[in-house]
Design a protein around this nucleic acid. Structure first.
Lengths: 127, 127
DNA sequence: ATATTTGCAAACGTTTTGCATAGTG
DNA sequence: CACTATGCAAAACGTTTGCAAATAT
């Protein structure tokens, strides 16, 4: 476990983080870690291959996260805001059902929901 | 609606298709449509922007589909097979709940589940 | 001393762009 | 005739690779 790997994991662990490459680089910078671009790519690949982090691509941008707890992402098609929402038991049950029905051993998932957030709905209806 | 747009939509409509760029190009070829690379990119961008198709990126590869019916994808981490599974009512209910809880107007989703398929589980347990 | 990690620059592949041409209403 | 769609080549961009230097074991 090197300083850079540790930095990435720390950054992604801090308050349930879900970070793009750019955001991750910023976070590392604030920790005084400034790896070369190639190093970041190599580390991310390593961490993904070893199932320590997962990659979730939304609208062409890669986001990285530590699969710590059940959640889904809400992506607003107007303002672009992405919010991470902790899961209710419903999803846990759904996964159990899916696993059983398909004889599939689930390791993790990405569940991205696209639509309009509250503000943008309000905005649209006012127009 | 041009011949190429039509070809893409047809290809993606045929038996619930979910195609990578490569697969799509093959399908078009068999329809005697051979657009320039830039045209494909332009058309896909257009169709996505206009919500006619959606893009779902799995393990760094973009897949395109027409959001016709509720489904999720099972992705095997060993053999790489991706299967599309039609939805049960459970997911429809879950979406309703999510929409209500977050005051979010859902347009579409992508739900990707990673793990081990039946064959690969069997294979692993035999080793 | 050996193995691993890192940075740098070059290479590579994919996607986008600019522009000229073809096709359409 | 004006407008859009297309192909081609070049440019731009993100990612990967090879190698040498630095660091750690």
């Amino acid at each position: 476990m090197t300083k850079i790997k540790e930095g990435i994991i720390d950054a992604l662990s801090e308050n349930d983080c879900f970070l793009s490459k750019q955001e991750l680089i910023e976070k590392l910078k604030s920790k005084k870690i400034k790896p070369a671009r190639s190093t970041i790519y190599r580390e991310l690949r390593f961490l993904i291959a070893n199932r320590i982090i997962i990659k979730n691509t939304i609208k062409g941008i890669d986001y990285f996260e530590i699969p710590q707890n059940y959640h889904y992402h809400l992506i607003c098609l107007k303002c672009g805001k992405i919010s991470q929402v902790r899961i209710n038991n419903f999803l846990k049950n759904l996964e159990k059902q899916i696993a059983k029905q398909n004889n599939f051993n689930i390791i993790y998932h990405s569940f991205n929901i696209y639509g309009y957030c509250h503000q943008c709905q309000t905005y649209l209806s006012k127009k």
